[in-house]
Design a protein around this nucleic acid. Structure first.
Length: 285
RNA sequence: GCGUCGAUGGUAGAGUGGUCAAAUACGACACGCUGUAAACGUGUUGCCUUCGGGCUUCGGGGGUUCGAAUCCCUCUCGACGCA
């Protein structure tokens, strides 16, 4: 028996992923499951470039607005929710379309990564964060030699997380990659640098026009601290046109860096209509 | 016109006789990623190199000194003050 098909639309920011996903959904009777670490949150709309009702064109969108900005949302939670949604969509006899730019989230679902079952221990994290990287590293070395060997010895966040897992499970489990339950068809959208830049500039301009600053004000009023706001990305940290444009370009580069490692992705130049048209033909099969 | 202060690598900005190819930050480039992922981290960033080193740099020119980004003279430019 053939595994159920799940389409994944990923790629750089501002390449038109959302619109493409909707188009595909229309064509093949699909529903969209977002894979965006910020669009998960309620109230982060303009700054995250979240799709609006009209743009959805009647296609159901899942995993938007399912978390509140005050609370932390994690990749493991995402994986759990996304898998549930995929099942639900399939049960309806429709095709799930994962769409987003958060590579870590996409891998969590499509590569069958099993996260250690250890929720964040904020108290422990706070205590550990007072220590230096060196101290944390030697601590980990004593607790779990294997993990210490391949960890970033200078990455405090990773060190703390590793120790957190060890404290709960005795050691950090080795990564197991289960064979995926679904047949993932990964479509990557990219744009040549000059076109990407133009596109981003346009998009950021629109962001300000649409009231990014107002959105930030609203979030603050709702009780989101400046510190928390800063964690939601540069749009919320330093909302000036120049800054947001240059940071977005850098971010797009980092995204590519991540996606490039995934050899299953079929890449398409978003500025070439012909390539997209060909893709559509293939999808009917 | 006189006086004072300043001119440093892609940018900002330390350094005031040797330990300086020159702190730091940003940018640029390359890269990593096991529950914060637009996050977090790493490396390179004058030129050449057989990776031991070698060579040319701190506005221009000249000088002092064993030795200058650092001291002196002079020129150019800039800021401020007095005329």
């Amino acid at each position: 028996m053939q595994k159920p098909k799940v389409i994944v639309v990923l790629g750089q920011t501002a390449t038109g992923k959302s619109a493409l996903a909707v188009k595909i959904a229309k064509k093949i009777n699909g529903e969209i499951v977002s894979a965006d670490s910020r669009q998960i949150y309620k109230g982060l709309n303009i700054g995250t470039g979240k799709i609006n009702k009209k743009e959805m064109r009647g296609i159901p969108h899942h995993l938007l607005d399912v978390a509140t900005p005050e609370k932390y949302f994690t990749a493991a939670q995402y994986k759990e929710l996304a898998e549930k949604k995929i099942e639900e969509v399939l049960a309806r006899g429709r095709t799930p379309i994962i769409c987003g730019g958060t590579g870590f989230y996409i891998d969590a679902v499509t590569k069958g990564v099993v996260f250690p079952d250890v929720p964040p221990n904020f108290k422990l994290r706070k205590t550990l964060s007072k220590k230096s990287e060196l101290e944390l590293f030697s601590m980990l070395k004593k607790l779990d030699k294997r993990r210490a060997q391949n960890i970033d010895a200078k990455n405090k966040i990773r060190l703390i997380r590793a120790i957190e897992i060890v404290k709960a499970l005795g050691r950090v489990p080795e990564i197991k990659e289960k064979a995926p339950v679904y047949r993932f068809i990964k479509i990557g959208l990219y744009l040549p640098p000059d076109k990407l830049k133009t596109k981003i500039e346009k998009r950021v301009k629109k962001m300000f026009k649409d009231g990014l600053l107002n959105e930030i004000k609203k979030l603050k009023k709702a009780g989101v601290s400046n510190k928390r706001l800063a964690e939601f990305g540069f749009e919320y940290r330093d909302p000036t046109y120049e800054r947001v444009v240059s940071e977005t370009l850098k971010y797009a580069k980092r995204q590519m860096l991540w996606f490039r490692r995934d050899k299953q992705i079929r890449w398409l130049d978003a500025s070439k209509k012909l390539e997209l048209a060909r893709l559509f033909k293939g999808l009917t099969l």
